[in-house]
């Protein structure tokens, strides 16, 4: 469990990092390293160069504004999780982060790194997709912003080009009348979820006017399903059942060591009900000024 030989550079400025990445088609970016380093040690990945971006300035920020949360590429999960601003502006981010692995991993792992690693079993790609966020990336030819809807191409595959470094993720803030919910079922505390779900519900008075549910570990990529129609304005046993059945039409849960596909479908149904209920209660509570 020792990595194969690789070159290592630790640029002090972004331009140098982008040039180093562009110079070697076999190069990989190292940020928190919580996914990459195990892959190196098991020799499942053997990049020719590691471009360590941990010395780059000004990338560890967590900034909130009227529109939402801007998370820098070097911001650690633990810092995002601990941020009162983040919890206030978009509580779904905080809810989901508490399910990301273990404290020691959250101390080093970065939220942006987790997103561009594009693991359909991870929480933060799904949250970005559900909230309709985006990622800003840079290369030697400039910067661009990729919406979440165009970011996840397949299992562990994002639409970042090889020579691009993700600089920031943007999570839109909670809108008026909205509430959120998140829950997952994992074999052990901190494990990748067998299935996880998040929900955003918008109410007017007591009526549901919009509802979306995002799923992780239920397809090759994070999937977001608009369930406004099947809810028909209410959250009830029968309406959330309908939402779950609709969601299943958009999902393709697989069988693996830990769960059959049928069990995962059951979890989709159960979690859809649970997160819609939680998000609805959250929305009503916020409307009453309780949150």
């Amino acid at each position: 469990m020792k990595p194969a030989p690789f070159a290592y550079v630790r640029p002090q400025g972004l331009q140098h990092a982008l040039e180093a990445l562009a110079a070697d088609p076999g190069a990989k970016v190292l940020a928190g390293g919580q996914s990459l380093v195990p892959l190196l040690s098991m020799r499942l990945a053997a990049p020719s160069t590691l471009v360590d971006i941990n010395a780059l300035p000004d990338l560890d920020g967590i900034r909130v504004d009227d529109t939402g949360i801007h998370v820098g590429a070097l911001a650690r999960h633990a810092d995002v999780l601990a941020s009162a601003d983040v919890r206030r502006v978009q509580p779904l981010v905080t809810l989901a982060l508490s399910h990301v692995a273990h404290a020691t991993i959250r101390n080093r792992g970065t939220t942006v790194g987790s997103i561009v690693h594009a693991d359909a079993a991870a929480e933060m790609p799904m949250v970005l997709a559900l909230l309709g966020g985006s990622v800003t990336v840079a290369s030697t030819s400039g910067t661009r912003t990729i919406p979440a809807s165009g970011l996840f191409a397949g299992p562990l595959e994002s639409t970042l080009r090889h020579d691009e470094i993700a600089l920031e993720a943007f999570f839109p803030g909670l809108g008026a009348g909205e509430g959120v919910g998140f829950e997952e079922v994992a074999r052990r505390h901190g494990d990748y979820a067998l299935v996880g779900a998040g929900a955003v519900v918008r109410v007017e008075g007591e009526a549901v006017v919009a509802a979306e549910v995002g799923f992780l570990s239920a397809s090759d990529v994070p999937v977001v399903v608009d369930v406004t129609d099947p809810l028909g304005g209410v959250v009830s046993t029968s309406s959330t059942d309908r939402a779950g059945e609709l969601a299943l039409q958009h999902l393709d849960p697989a069988e693996d060591l830990h769960a059959t596909a049928a069990y995962r479908r059951q979890l989709v149904r159960v979690l859809t009900t649970r997160v819609l209920g939680a998000a609805y209660d959250d929305a009503l509570g916020r409307a009453r000024g309780e949150a």
């Binding site: 067998l194 830990h258 049928a262 069990y263 059951q266």
Partner: peptide, 8 residues
Amino acid sequence: ISPSELFE
């Protein structure tokens, strides 16, 4: 026995 197996 796992939850998945109990479900089945």
